[in-house]
Write a protein that binds this DNA or RNA. Structure first.
Length: 440
RNA sequence: CGGAGUGUAGCGCAGCCUGGUAGCGCAACGGUCUGGGGGACCGUAGGUCGCAGGUUCAAAUCCUGCCACUCCGACCA
């Protein structure tokens, strides 16, 4: 992509409304613009990040056996009256009336909608278990939206729902999502720690929040130091096997948000207890028959018995993650994207746009990288070097490749790794191979 | 919803107290010189001062009401 033809409105000054770093950087890097309180437009660069996050979520959900669907943003109030939540949900739910005076609502979540779908079309125990999910915009009319996309009113969420015959099987579904979440966050370059959470009025101890650590996080978290040192990656998981040992290996170590943490009863000795800041990027819970009972969601068993389904729901804040990743990964100059979610792999800087030799070398490199499957943002603007370097650091692409008259004469280009700042003068070929190795 | 603020050019801000020609920096546009970490100079363009009403010869400035946005608190992916 040639920057001269792209839409990347970067800012030198920080808009005054932004106080936390991810919000500032998302505005400055031209990723988002605020439409109104807690509601954002996503510009090309931000949209690419959002899509990358979505893709990882899709891949991991499907690897774990969940099936993608797409449910509407607008739902019927009658459906929510069935579960009793139309009245239970407070002013946080945006209520709308259509031209026929029918009560509608902009979905803050989709338990009712998915339960209706399953109720209508899953009739036999043979059809279970099932796990359906979608990635769709939600609206919650937060009392006070803030922190940019980290706590917007409109936000993109992956919400998934499992349906099982009994607790045993529902617990298996829960474990699958637990492990899938670990994998999902790890792939984004994040260390997300599962922490015991309140599961609301129903459902014992089966609820976990996934928290990533960031100095600017909104809530304090307390954890066993051993937990923070764990490598969150979960490679080669066999989702058909018993996942309880993996889940246990995480949940057996103490971790709690400040709401749940009680210094008096904390089992971790002081020297091993670590206090950090965290951002919630996911929440999973098992809720049994909370929705299937009032909404009559049941299947027929071999002996003819009608059995209510046991449900769980699983959320990932997709748009929040874009901000959360920046909170966890940035420096004074700007964003430092983990490779997997970066909007482009390489920022190619032509220092002397208009110079025949530089133009040729840069264009060739651009083409070669693209042929090799590398996504390139090619800064071919007629700007001064400092502007280009500053913009490139700001938007935080993993690799920066600089083509300038000095290097062109010597037959080299400069390759910089954004995360470390490490720079090397290399031949075009070895720069290429470093990038291909590094991003593979 | 309680508390505290802010609305003046695309962005960052001054001017308001003490009413009298609407300003600065950056960005934009044209040009000259430059050219490896946000360069310099010359020129141009851009504003119903959030909206409505009031006071006054005269309102960005004083008064009233409304709206929007931000920050702190309780709530949430």
């Amino acid at each position: 992509m040639r920057l001269s033809r792209y839409f990347l409105p970067t800012l030198k000054d920080t808009p005054s409304e932004a106080t936390i770093v991810s919000h500032r950087l998302m505005l400055r890097a031209g990723m988002v613009r605020q439409a109104s309180a807690g509601i954002y437009s996503w510009l090309p660069l931000g949209f690419r990040v959002l899509k990358n996050i979505e893709n990882i979520v899709h891949e991991e959900m499907q690897a774990a056996g969940a099936h993608p669907v797409l449910m509407p943003t607008l739902q019927s109030a009658d459906l929510w009256r069935e579960s009793g939540r139309y009245d239970a949900y407070g002013p946080e739910m945006l209520r709308i009336t259509d031209r026929h005076e029918r009560d509608m609502l902009y979905g803050p979540t989709n338990e009712e909608q998915i339960t209706q779908i399953v109720r209508d079309d899953i009739r036999s125990y043979r059809d279970l278990p099932r796990n359906l999910y979608h990635i769709q915009w939600k609206f919650r009319d937060e009392i006070r939206p803030r922190f940019g996309v980290m706590r917007g009113r409109e936000f993109l969420m992956k919400d998934g729902y499992s349906f099982d015959l009994d607790f045993e099987s529902a617990k298996r579904s829960y474990n699958i999502m637990f492990v899938a979440y670990l994998r999902t966050y790890a792939r984004m370059g994040l260390k997300a720690i599962p922490m015991a959470a309140d599961s609301g009025p129903i459902g014992g101890d089966l609820s976990h929040e996934f928290i990533i650590l960031a100095d600017t996080g909104e809530s304090a978290v307390y954890a066993d130091a051993a937990l923070l040192e764990r490598d969150p990656r979960q490679d080669d998981v066999d989702f058909t096997a018993d996942l309880e040992p993996i889940v246990q290996s995480w949940t057996s170590l103490y971790a709690a948000t400040d709401e749940k943490h009680d210094p008096a009863s904390c089992p971790v000795p002081a020297d091993r207890l670590v206090e950090r800041r965290g951002i919630e990027v996911g929440h999973i819970f098992y809720f049994g028959t909370k929705y299937s009972e009032p909404m009559g969601c049941a299947v027929t068993m071999p002996d003819g018995e009608r059995r209510l389904l046991h449900g769980g729901s699983y959320g990932i804040g997709v748009s929040r993650l874009a901000g959360a990743i920046i909170e966890a990964s940035h420096d004074d100059a700007g964003i430092i994207w983990p490779d997997a979610v970066a909007p482009f792999d390489v920022g190619l800087i032509n220092l002397k746009s208009g110079d025949a030799e530089c133009d040729t070398v840069a264009s060739d490199l651009d083409a070669k990288l693209q042929d090799a499957g590398v996504e390139v943002l090619h800064d071919d603007r007629d700007e001064r070097a400092g502007v280009k370097f500053a913009d490139m650091d700001l938007i935080g692409l993993p690799w920066q490749l600089t083509v300038g008259p000095r290097g062109v004469k010597a037959g080299t280009v400069e390759l910089k790794r954004r995360a470390t700042g490490e720079k090397h003068e290399l031949s075009v070929d070895s720069a290429m191979s470093r990038i291909l190795e590094g991003s593979a």
